[in-house]
């Protein structure tokens, strides 16, 4: 059974249908990468999975539990899912360490000293142990994004959602964040990623899903989807991207 499954998910803003009859499965320990043009619904999909948006129809289940049920405890579900945003969204008034320990202390009721020790472990892992007492605005973009990843990782989430996490970074800082993701990938953390980094998608993904107008137009292993796409629209999208990348 898959860890995360979407069945017939629909989300619309007024007349604008962003997700339409969407089915997707993410197996435990796998990495699924969503690609597609801007506005194809990638970010909205992640926001729905994290219950930051309410779906208009369909079912999203995590570990076999229907999380789109309005009676579900949304805070509890969210606390089991790690999210990393495009613009980091670190809390500017808190140090890096306090950013990372906020949820363990307040949500998971971990003792302060235990939470700190664990946070320092995770910060060490993302290479930021020496920046624990810095404020977010003292860090580079890449460092901020790694701190945001640490903040999500510290709760040992069953699933990580990564929303174009390198898009706001200067090109020379993208590498350090992708290196960290490769690392997490080899640890077997379940990840649902949307990205514009095609080479990276091809490298880390178990399954790649091409979104077009709010539908999963084509899903397949990366070699097939990038090497020999079935759908003409997928081919068109990939050739446009390749042209741009030269």
């Amino acid at each position: 059974m898959s860890l995360l499954s979407l069945r017939g998910v629909r989300k619309a803003y007024g007349a604008n249908v962003v997700l339409d009859d969407f089915d997707l499965d993410v197996d435990e320990g796998s990495c699924v990468v969503l690609i597609g043009a801007s506005g194809s619904g990638k970010s909205t999909l992640l926001r729905c999975v994290n219950l930051l948006e309410t779906v208009d129809d369909g079912v999203i289940s995590l570990n076999g539990v229907d999380i789109t049920d309005p009676r579900a405890d949304a805070d509890k579900i969210r606390s089991g899912i790690g999210v990393v945003f495009q613009s980091y969204n670190l809390f500017p008034h808190l140090s890096v360490l306090d950013n990372v320990t906020l949820a363990p202390i307040r949500v998971h009721r971990v003792r302060r000293d235990v939470a700190r020790a664990r946070a320092l472990e995770v910060l060490d892992r993302v290479g930021l142990a020496d920046k624990a007492s810095a404020k977010p605005d003292e860090l580079s973009g890449g460092q901020q994004q790694r701190a945001a990843i640490a903040r999500a990782l510290v709760n040992s989430p069953a699933l990580m959602l990564l929303d174009e996490i390198t898009s706001a970074l200067d090109p020379e800082l993208v590498g350090e964040v992708l290196d960290l993701l490769r690392d997490l990938r080899s640890d077997g953390i379940t990840m649902l990623i949307c990205t514009h980094e095609m080479a990276f998608a091809r490298e880390v993904a178990d399954q790649v899903c091409f979104l077009h107008h709010g539908r999963p137009l084509e899903i397949g292993p990366p070699d097939q989807l990038f090497g020999n796409p079935r759908e003409p629209r997928t081919r068109e999208f990939l050739s446009r991207i390749r042209q741009r990348e030269g």
């Binding site: 994290n50 930051l52 805070d75 509890k76 969210r78 606390s79 089991g80 899912i81 790690g82 999210v83 945003f85 613009s87 969204n89 670190l90 809390f91 906020l102 949820a103 307040r106 949500v107 998971h108 903040r151 999500a152 709760n155």
Partner: peptide, 12 residues
């Protein structure tokens, strides 16, 4: 986005 980040961590 600050609220979104906090809620995504499970904060009420």
């Amino acid at each position: 986005s600050q609220r979104a980040a906090a809620r995504s961590l499970g904060l009420s």
